[in-house]
Amino acid sequence: MLLQIKNLHVSINGKEILRGINLEVNKGEVHAIMGPNGTGKSTLANVIAGKEGYEITQGEILYNGKDIQKMPPEVRAQEGIFLGFQYPVEIPGVSMTNFMRTSLNEIRKYHGQEPIPAKEFLARMAEKKELVEITAKLTNRSVNEGFSGGEKKKNEIYQMAMLEPQLAILDETDSGLDIDALRIVANGVNKLKTSENATVVITHYQRLLDYIVPDFVHVLFEGKVVLSGGKELALELEEKGYDWIKKETEKR
């Protein structure tokens, strides 16, 4: 099993956000996590990636069978966890080339590999740019600086393509995208899918799932997974709305 989350409770400043999450992700699977705003979706993504400021009060997160709670975020990334940010950060002065090369080489170093040869690196950049249909020159552009909303999201998938993670968590990658950009982003994700990796797509709308077809859909509500099912669950949710979830939860 790639990712196993057991009874995860997480608080921010003493306020409990996640209240007992259980989730299992295997290699080769695509999972979708849906749910209304403010229900803990981003918190879950950030906690898996190792962002500071969250307190895990109960439960555990196992990645490839290892407890990653104490791992700094860079080690989790080196182990193969990738987070596609809901709001990618602009880093003026750091060029995309430099950023990706440093990133790739640190990951390689972690696995005892030599730095990537310059030629191979440039070829890889060109190839992956094509995958996400980035036409602009990235070489001298600073990370996300002056990128449009759509470009930023494409850039997340581009980085995912460059780093080839084992587990990619895409946090609201579809938000703020027009239909063309959405298709490009989804296409990229689909092309990167192998039997050895897994993707967790976090989304508010069903729309993205027309393009990225999930094996499993989980509905997160008030810090808990209240419903899990196949891709048809997303359609049902789209039809009935989140109020339906509310009522279903209250019934129990």
């Binding site: 880093i91 750091v94 990133s103 790739l104 640190e106």
Partner: peptide, 30 residues
């Protein structure tokens, strides 16, 4: 140094020290 930028860089597998270095260098680069 901007914490959200630091986390973003570290999430790409770059160590905290190097992430800080990258940000400081970028700051001076302007």
């Amino acid at each position: 140094l901007d914490d959200s930028a630091l986390f973003y860089i570290r999430q790409r597998g770059i160590s905290e020290d190097n992430a800080r270095m990258l940000l400081m260098y970028a700051f001076a680069a302007e």
